[in-house]
Amino acid sequence: MATPIDIHTPIKSDDPANSSSAISVRGLSVRYGDRLALDNVNVDIGWGTIVGVIGPNGAGKSTFLKAILGVVPHRDVSLLIGGKPQSVGRKQIAYVPQREEVHWDFPVTVEDVALMGSYGRLGLLGRPSTKDRELARWALDQVGMLDRHHTQIAELSGGQQQRVFLARALVQQGRILILDEPLNGVDASTEETILHLLDDFRKSGGTVLMATHDLDIAARVSDDLCCINRTIIAFGPTAQVFTPQVLARTYGGKIMHTHGQHDIIIGENGSVGVNPQHVHEHPQLIPNGGVETKDKAET
C-alpha cells in the first residue's frame, strides 16, 4: 500500500479488562467462510462519548458492531461490555440495525415497534407491562412520532421509520447505543432529531457507537473516530484521527481532488466521503486525474 504512515495506536491503555471502559475488545477476528472480515481488532471505548465508525464498504463496520452485539461468531476474543463479559453486558446495549434488514410490510404499528425495545428484558413468557407501554410512548414523543403511534410502519417515510427505530432503542434503556448507518436515506429534520438525541445520550453519560459512510457527519459529531478496514486502522480523538493520511490508509489510498473547495475521498468500493481539511497540503496522496462523483460536498 502507500508509504508507511503513523498509525494511532488503537489501544489507549494496556490495562486488561479495563472496567472503566464501556466496550473493551481484545483480539477480535471474524471469519465468514474463507473470508477474514475482521482481523485482530483491539479497542477500548470509554463512557460518555460518541464514536464514529468509518471505513469503506465491506471493510467490516457492520461486522464490528455485530461482534460487539454478539451476533456473529468470533474467535479468540476478550469482549467486555461495561466491564462484564459480553453475554452479561449485552443487556446494556441498545441497537438500531440497518434499515435494509427489516421486514417493513409486517403488520405492526409504530407503537408495536417501539414496544419491541422492551422484549429483550422480558424473558420467555413475559409480556410488556403498563410501564413498558408508557416508556414506549415517552420514547416516541422524544423522536416526534407519538401522534403516528397507530400507523403501520410501512406507511412511514424512511426518516420516520428511522425515528421509530431510535425510539425502540431508547426503550431498550441501554447505556451503550449502537447504530448502523442511522442516517442513510433520512431527511434533514430527522437527521437533526437523531443527532440531537445522540448528543443528549452522551451528556447523560452514555456511549454511542455509530457506523456511517458519511465522513462529514462522522467528523462533525464524533468525539472519537474508529477507522476500520478489516482491522482498526486508527482510533482516537477526531481531531487527531481525521487526517488525510489516516483516511487514505482507511480508504485504500485513493483521495480524489475535485472541483470546489472540497476534497472527495473514494473508497475501494466506491464509497464517497468529504474531507474538509488539508488534503491539498498533501498532493502526493492525490492521483492524477479527477473522478466523476456525486458531489456530496454541496450538502
Binding site: 451476533v71 434488514e101 427489516v102 408495536d112 419491541m116
Partner: peptide, 22 residues
C-alpha cells in the same frame, strides 16, 4: 400465544432479535 413476542420480533427484524439474544 406463548411465543407471540418472540415470533413477532424474529419475523419483523431478525438483526434486532439476534442482538437481544433470542
Amino acid at each position: 400465544a406463548l411465543l407471540y413476542k418472540e415470533f413477532l420480533l424474529t419475523s419483523f427484524d431478525r438483526a434486532m432479535a439476534a442482538a437481544m439474544g433470542f
